[in-house]
């Protein structure tokens, strides 16, 4: 039902005009008092925790935090460590592919589901279902599926294709793609549902108009519908990126970082050195670099997104 009027209007409501300047401090005092715990939590737990972590990344803390500052030594060691560099490369590959494929596959699936097909809700449920599973379960399931002795490879070989080889998790060069497959399987359903909601929000009149003008459906999607779905895409983008940076449990369940160090990721480095290696300083330095990476991506985007709106 792409022409549902209730959904169609949602995108277009303008915020009420803020013409009258409120007396800032006293206005809505109860609400402000009620907000104090939240503000304190944000300041102490999130901001305070971040500052503390960054500070202690400049120390030589081992198992317990210790304020003996050693300058940039932890960072020098971090970037001289092969495992860390491989982790960053893996995250870049996984991140880029996961971003592109999640958006593309999610959108295509949503567009297909949006064709007024029969049993739509059944398909929607099937495609969204993997999202209900945790990464640990997903990882274990795909570890079995991709296992050459029990999974896809053995089934296809049993069908008569003796030369068939498909064992991404055991080949260091492509193991990260084995993780990617599992990640996409788990996460694409959610993106699809978001996209579907976005598509349902598009006014049916637009479709009618484009049909009258004789524009092919694929062109309508790419040049009209997708730009109109910008807010949905941004939501999807944020969800996918946050999933990329925190990638950890999937790797642990599926490969444990192996073969060798072929599927190591930064979050795993942080954990292994903080707790396994009993070297908090090194773990903090690594997590600070992760924070920095997120900041580099998020800050320009946030400035574009929110800064731009205020000016316009």
């Amino acid at each position: 039902m792409p022409s549902d009027p209730v959904h169609a209007r949602q995108g277009g409501t303008a915020p009420p005009s803020a013409a009258r300047r409120p007396r800032r401090l006293l206005r809505n005092l109860t609400a402000k008092i009620a907000a104090i715990p939240m503000v304190l939590t944000a300041m102490v737990v999130f901001l305070g925790g971040t500052v503390w972590t960054v500070t202690y990344s400049f120390t030589n803390s081992k198992l317990l935090p210790r304020a003996e500052f050693v300058g940039l030594a932890q960072y020098e060691r971090l970037w001289a460590t092969r495992r860390w560099v491989v982790s960053i490369e893996n995250l870049a590959i996984y991140g880029l592919c996961s971003l592109v494929f999640s958006l593309v596959i999610g959108f295509v699936l949503a567009a297909l589901l949006d064709q007024k097909i029969r049993y739509e809700s059944a398909f929607r449920t099937i495609l969204l279902y993997p999202f209900a599973l945790s990464f640990i379960v997903t990882g274990l399931v795909w570890q079995w599926i991709l296992n050459p002795e029990f999974g896809v490879q053995s089934i296809i070989r049993a069908m008569g294709f003796e030369g068939f080889a498909f064992d991404p998790l055991y080949n260091p060069d492509i193991a990260i793609f084995g993780i990617l497959i599992a990640g996409l399987w788990q996460g694409t359903g959610l993106i699809m549902v978001l996209m579907l909601a976005g598509l349902r929000g598009i006014d049916g009149e637009i479709w009618k108009a484009s049909r009258v003008d004789g524009i092919p459906a694929w062109k309508t999607y790419i040049f009209i519908i997708v730009p109109m779905m910008r807010p949905v895409f941004i939501t999807a983008l944020v969800l996918i990126t946050s999933g990329i940076v925190k990638l950890y449990d999937l790797v642990v369940a599926q490969t444990g970082g192996g073969p060798g160090i072929a599927t190591e990721v930064p979050a795993k480095y942080v954990y292994d050195y903080m707790f396994g290696g009993q070297n908090l300083g090194q773990g903090f330095a690594a997590s600070t670099m992760m924070l920095l990476a997120v900041a580099i991506v998020v800050i320009p985007w946030a400035m574009l997104e929110f800064g731009g709106k205020r000016r316009g």
Partner: peptide, 17 residues
Amino acid sequence: DSDTRTQIEDLLVEFFA
């Protein structure tokens, strides 16, 4: 200590793979 142990393990796991 555990820090050195972890580093040696990282090296060897890479070497064997």
